[in-house]
Design a protein around this nucleic acid. Structure first.
Lengths: 249, 249
DNA sequence: TGTGCTACAGAGGTCCGACCACTAGAATAC
DNA sequence: GTATTCTAGTGGTCGGACCTCTGTAGCACA
């Protein structure tokens, strides 16, 4: 990694970081135009762009062509495709993503049960209702599904865990939207979400954890079936170990 | 996020991604020099650099001035300072990082107990021995401490969770190395690590999880004490986040 | 009055070509 | 044999020209 006082990239990153820490730059704020900002920092526009690119890659900045550059808004999330890229590099398996998600979200649910506030419970309740209302519209259903889990993450009171979850789910999303679930699955799914909600609202941490785990385990096996059904192994890589070897208790 | 077929950045990213997925590019491999590679891809060197910067920011590439650009090697990790940056932006608290770490590592320890192999146990044992041997050298001790936890992550068989842990610990590292622990704390710490190791080797998942949780809880309160001791609370500001150093330079 | 199209200003995106800075290894001097 | 210097090759920075995209103000037309 580049040194802070030498490389232009880090100079830009640190400058913006300082602006953020001092409160001079808030989420959603727009930074000055590149030409102007570069002149103010006494560096070339190219270097400024490098630094901004670095921040954008990590989800801290949001660059919009023809409009401007803004401080990222919305739920904290690490680089959008970073996990997916790392996955390609290190050969992540699908079940590993599900496992990671299951662990994170189970704990998130437990924390939400302990720390959630009324406003969170209200949002959860609304999303559950919307899920029931859209069991025949998988696309719309998925939106509320995602939102429900996101509210839980918020209610957990730990934005770091929430960011990690967001990172994993967005990596998982690509595969997920391709396998549109069937309606009857959605009814079951909505029921489970309702159970999760109830456990959280009654502040029963261990049950929230357990139900969430059950939900995600089911979701995984459902998706595994879909995949193996509609796409026979498209093999090609020699060392492709077919998972599930060790420790499935 | 730029579109894949329009933006040069994504063209580069996708090209390299394809090379990695096809096996034509493995961790540690060097990519062609920028001038040459840019010509081969029919794009300008500047655009190529943008794409490489994007990949480097996410920890997929490793750019070394005067040497070359390589595919990242070593343990998978998301952008090195990404969490720290996001933290500055969203006001992450120190206890939240510890909590996230505690949850991740506890589960990691449990998984390691279920799936760890002999080779992992051997490495863990070695690191524990090194820890005992360096209880009087905090700097050296910390190295083995980190390695021990890294072996556990490997032994868990889930590189994604390992990567998340790596991301958190590297964000935590900055604060950590400043508060060099005292020797007698290190002796206790080593004892706890030995306990963790024994639980994992005896494949006792729940105990491994419990001991790891205890270890990290202790580490947290120890560090909290250090901090509050050497930096008296600047009273009166209840919800003010702990400022990071941000470099004196 | 309303609606649709056009022109334009301002922002980011791409390119070029020159030059700077760093690293490792080869060539040289001792 | 060892230490020093030189050098080829690689990434880093620059500035300035030009392209593309977006939102909007203004115009033409119904």
């Amino acid at each position: 990694m580049p040194k802070s006082d030498t490389h232009m990239t880090m100079r830009v990153v640190n400058h913006i970081r300082t602006l953020i820490e001092s409160g001079g730059l808030q989420p959603g704020d727009q930074i000055p135009p590149e030409r102007e900002f570069a002149q103010k920092l006494r560096i070339s526009r190219a270097s400024l762009r490098t630094g901004i690119g670095y921040l954008a890659a990590m989800g801290v900045m949001d660059v919009r062509h023809g409009v401007g550059t803004f401080v990222a808004d919305g739920p904290p999330e690490l680089g959008k495709s970073s996990l997916s890229l790392l996955g390609a590099l290190h050969g992540f398996q699908s079940w590993q993503m599900f496992e990671a998600r299951r662990i994170l979200e189970s704990e998130l649910a437990a924390l939400a049960a302990e720390r959630g506030r009324e406003q969170h419970f209200t949002s959860m309740s609304e999303e559950v209702a919307e899920m029931y209302a859209t069991v025949n519209d998988p696309i719309e259903y998925l939106i509320h599904d995602v939102r429900f889990h996101r509210v839980i993450a918020q209610a957990s009171g730990n934005p770091i865990l929430a960011a990690l979850m967001e990172t994993i789910t967005s990596a998982l999303y690509d595969e997920r939207r391709k396998t549109a679930e069937r309606s009857r699955d959605l009814k079951e799914s909505a029921d489970l979400h309702r159970e999760i909600f109830r456990a959280i609202r009654s502040r029963n941490a261990s049950e929230a954890r357990a139900v969430m785990e059950r939900h995600l385990t089911m979701a995984q096996s459902a998706q595994d079936l879909e995949i193996s059904a509609q796409a026979p192994p498209p093999n090609g890589r020699p060392a492709k170990k077919v998972r599930r070897s060790a420790g499935e208790a």
